[in-house]
Design a protein around this nucleic acid. Sequence first.
RNA 1: GAGGCAUUGGUGUAGUGGCAACACAAGAGGUUGUGGUCCUCUUGACAGGGGUUCGAUUCCCCUAUGUCUCCCCA
Length: 446
Amino acid sequence: MNKAIKKAPAKKEEAETTAAKPAKRARKPGKFTFQSVKGMHDILPVDQVFWDKIRKEVLNISDYYGFERIDTPAIENAAVFEKGVGAATDIVEKEMFYIKSDDKLVLRPECTASVVRAYLEHGMTHLPQPVKLYYFGPMYRHEQPQEGRFREFHQVGFEILGSESDPIYDAQVILACYRLLEACKLSKLEIHVNTIGCRVCRPVFRRRLLEYYKNKPICKDCRRRIVTNPLRLLDCKEEKCEKFKKDAPTILDSTCNNCNTHFKSVVEYLDELKIPYILDNNLVRGLDYYSRTTFEIFETGSKLALAGGGRYDYLVEILGGKVTPAVGAALGVERIVSLMQERNPEMGRKSKVDVFLVHIGSLAKKKSLVLIEELRKGGIRVREALGKDSMKSQLRQADKENVTLALIYGQKEAFEDTIIIRDLANSSQETVPLEKLVAEVKRRLK
RNA sequence: GAGGCAUUGGUGUAGUGGCAACACAAGAGGUUGUGGUCCUCUUGACAGGGGUUCGAUUCCCCUAUGUCUCCCCA
């Protein structure tokens, strides 16, 4: 990701008045420049190479594992998330962009709830199950922007809905994320996995956790969490809370047999796939809809998760459907792009272009657009600087664009229906008839 | 939502209570229709507003944005 371009903020400014003080210094008129709104970024041409790469790999992976694309609107009813993600979560409590309208609408803060909404709305429950979907699009969270964390950001997500709560799908979702990151040439990946139990055993664990922490001198945030979301106690990074974690009851001691078996299977599938993972009993995720498996993928040493997800067996029901197990995950595109740029900057180089058309004189210029069409039909990638009439600046640009051949088309050539092909690497050139141009260029490019 | 630090051309950096410098990038040239290296020239900035001051890019305050810590997440 490039650094955000700094510009003067758009400020209203009074019209220059000469009355108050005589200007001792010549002042420039006020600037009315805009900048992108806080936490939102332009994706510039120089970054697009990396985005294209990710999109390409997403297409590959999803095709390979049988995920079909779904796009849902960026705007949803607030209730989709209030109910789906959970009213007590940070996302819903303080991070949603509400839209000014008669209805209670928000910019989506995540996409799983939207996908489930669409799954129910379009009767996908009647399709052969499971339904495997993926999405790629912008999400919006009103939080404090920082590196790797924006108010508008993009997620790729994989969702598998409507099968039995079969652990093999948990493994497949993890696998898809892992392979996608690998395909983006990121190595040193760490998969953290955990289970947070189901409706039956999670309350048991919560009680034991409460019991354990009841008289401990924990930080004030944890005092609050103990009421709102006790599982998050395990997430706390405060020193005074850290030391209690060691002896805290672990979820694995509390999980019911079904959940144990489920988790064990997930892990076995991962073993079978030979993808490395780390059991992380403290991995609890902030969204209410998760059950059983949770996971996050990091680059080793980084605190920012590249991907995160888990099973959400109750979400379909919460949003008004029948109990329908499901599992899914999302990847943060900006975070991936940022790492790709760091690790493989050479990926950002422009691909070499075949030819550059240099025109001289008005006749040649006039015929240039048609000539470019011919080249395009011949499958030859061509660059030009039609607006520049000086030959020198055209050739200079050809050099900067890193092209292989320059085609020099002047007054004489335009009359004779010929053109000069110049090899920019060794400065040799020859004149060929126009009708042989495409064939000759192709021959030389081989 | 709380706190710390930062902000100088397109980019990366100097610098100063009194003409803001350098490199790269960009543009135009270096005489006939030939690029790279080289040379010349040009464009272009003190984030915005207010205060102190004879004078503020520099000191102070506010705002905006970035960044870090917390919170949380992708």
